[in-house]
Amino acid sequence: MTRYLLSKLFEAALAIWGVVTIVFFVSRVLGDPAVLLLPIGAVEQDLERLRAALGLDRPILEQYVISMLAMFRGDFGISFQHTRPALDVVLERMPATGLLAGTALVFGTLIGAAAGAIAALRRGTVAEFIVMTAALLGQATPVFWLGIMLILLFAVELGWLPTGGYGSLAYLILPGVTLSVFVSASIARLLRSSLLDIMREDYVRTARAKGLLPKTVFLWHIARNALIPVVTMIGIIAGELLGGSVVIETVFAWPGVGRVIMQAIQAQDFPVIQAGVALVAVIFVVVNLLVDLLYGVLDPRIRRH
C-alpha cells in the first residue's frame, strides 16, 4: 500500500508540474499585461519600468525557473490586479465554489442514482422511458442556456429568486439546480447501463439460484459492483465542479474559483492564472487519488493488483 501511495503521489506531482508549466508558457503569449495596467497613452519608458517591476523584462526561461522555485515554496507572486498574494486571491473564492459544487454533487448524485436504479429495475416500462428521456435531455441541454431560462422564469417573471450573486440560501438555488441537472443526468445513464451489465453476469444468476433474497442480491452482488464506474464518473465531476464551473459562475455572478481565473485571463494576471490552475490541478489529483482508494473498498480484488 505504501509503494502504491508513493507512486500515485509521484504521478500527481508530475501532473501538477506539467500543467503549471504549460500554463506558464501559454499565458506569456496572451499579451503584455503592462499595456492593460497602465492608462491609455502611456509612453514606452513607463511600460518598460512596469515590466521591470513585474519581472517581465527578464528572459522567458529565467522567469520560468524563478516562478517554479517560488511555487515550490507556495509563493505564486503578487496579483497584478489585486496587489495581493495571488494564492490568497484564489483561496478566498474556494468557499463559494465548494458550496456550489457540494450542493450540485450531493443532490445530483442522489437524484441520478435513484433515477438510474429505477430505469434498470423497471426496464421496458414507461418509468424507464421517462427517466432515460429526461436524462438524455439533461445531458444535451447546454448549462448556460438552462441557467438563463431558470433566471428568466424564477427571477424575472415570477420574482421568487435573485438573478445572481452570493449570500443567503436563495442565491444558491438556481445555480445549484442548474449544475445538478447535468450531474444527475450523467449518473443516471451510466448507473442504468452498469446495473444492466452486472445483472447479466453469471455470479448474479448463481446468487439467485442459491435462494438469496432479491434485496440481498441487488445490494451485495449487483449495486456494489455497478458503482465502480459511477464512482469514477463522480470523481471526474467533483474535480470539475471544485475546480470552478466557469460558465455557471459567470451566468449567476457567483464569486468562485472559475470566475476569478476567467477574470485573470482577461486581465493577463499571470500570478492569479498560475495559482488558480495549480489549485485546480491539485484538486483533480486529490479527488482521483481518493477514487482509486475507494475502488479497493468496493471491490477487494483491486487491492491485489
Rank of each mutant, 00 (worst) to 15 (best):
T232C: 12
L241K: 06
V231A: 11
L241Q: 10
T216M: 11
I234F: 15
V230K: 11
L242C: 09
W220M: 06
D197I: 12
T216I: 06
W220A: 08
L219R: 08
V231G: 04
G239D: 10
T232F: 13
M199Q: 12
W220Q: 11
W220L: 11
D197L: 07
L212S: 02
I236R: 13
L241R: 05
V230L: 11
R224H: 08
T232W: 12
N225S: 14
A207S: 04
M199E: 09
V231I: 13
V230S: 11
T232S: 15
L227K: 11
K215D: 15
M233V: 15
A223V: 05
K215P: 07
S194R: 06
K210Y: 02
R224S: 12
I222E: 09
T232K: 14
V230I: 14
A209H: 01
R208F: 02
I222L: 11
V217Q: 03
M199S: 08
H221F: 02
Y203K: 13
D202Y: 11
T216R: 14
V231Y: 01
L241Y: 14
Y203P: 09
I234G: 08
A207G: 04
A223D: 03
I236G: 10
A226F: 07
L227G: 09
F218A: 01
E240D: 07
G235N: 04
V231H: 08
I228V: 15
V217L: 05
G239I: 15
G235A: 05
N225A: 14
M233D: 03
P214C: 01
G239Q: 08
L219S: 06
S194L: 06
G239K: 11
E201P: 03
G211Y: 05
I198Y: 09
T216A: 14
Y203F: 04
K210H: 03
H221V: 01
F218P: 01
T216L: 12
W220I: 05
I228Q: 14
V231D: 01
L212E: 00
A226S: 12
I198W: 09
P214A: 02
A226V: 03
L227E: 02
R224M: 08
P214H: 03
L195E: 07
A223Y: 01
E201R: 15
E240Y: 14
D197H: 10
R205L: 14
M199F: 13
P214V: 00
L195G: 09
V217M: 06
P214N: 05
G235R: 07
I237R: 04
K210L: 03
Y203R: 11
N225L: 13
E240P: 01
I234R: 08
G239N: 10
M199W: 13
L196P: 02
L213E: 15
T206Q: 02
G211M: 03
T216H: 13
H221L: 00
T232H: 14
Y203W: 01
